[in-house]
């Protein structure tokens, strides 16, 4: 019985079945499969949740509870550049508040908001384990460390092109 309109590619099905052999329960596949889904489909829509639920033999409601508990799953269409500036103590001691304020000014948005063109979202996040190389930010999958206003400007210029 299938409800989801979304389907895995053949290669992906093979990858998931190989993973399934690594866990004694289907339930334990949930986080790995959510990651695969996010990589393939860009974000975790309700339809994708149904697909993940079928794959891991659980309820869509349970998948929903996980996708909302863990902060790294995208529940909306992803944005081109998700800028996440560390706001914790070590980075703040090294000036991350100034970095965040500068990006807010440059993008014309506050932390927690996205630009009107949908290209940038800015978030103040918790410790990225970059305390020795702060101030730090994560943009999509990459870390940017020892930030200065000049470094941030150069990056923003590049991304705004």
């Amino acid at each position: 019985m299938t409800h989801s309109m979304t389907r895995w590619s053949a290669a992906r099905t093979e990858e998931i079945e190989a993973l399934r052999r690594r866990y004694p329960t289907d339930h334990a596949l949930l986080l790995p499969v959510l990651w695969i889904a996010q990589r393939d489909f860009g974000w975790i829509s309700h339809d994708v949740m149904e697909l993940v639920a079928e794959t891991c033999r659980t309820s869509p409601a349970h998948v929903y509870s996980l996708a909302t508990f863990y902060t790294m799953f995208e529940l909306e269409k992803p944005i081109r550049y998700h800028i996440q500036v560390c706001n914790n103590l070590s980075c703040s001691l090294c000036g991350s508040e100034g970095i965040l304020a500068h990006i807010e000014k440059r993008l014309g948005i506050r932390a927690g908001e996205a630009t009107a063109d949908g290209r940038f979202r800015l978030t103040a996040v918790e410790c990225l384990a970059s305390c020795g190389t702060g101030p730090a930010m994560q943009v999509n999958d990459a870390y940017y460390e020892k930030l200065t206003l000049e470094k941030v400007d150069a990056l923003l210029e590049e991304w705004m092109k």
Binding site: A28, L31, T58, F69, T71, M72, F73, E126
Partner: peptide, 25 residues
Amino acid sequence: TIHRGAGAYICGEETALLNSIEGKK
């Protein structure tokens, strides 16, 4: 088997970590 978390400080607590691998919150 390498199992990737998804953004939750509490998963460093050892029993939360177990639940997370098992596909729970």
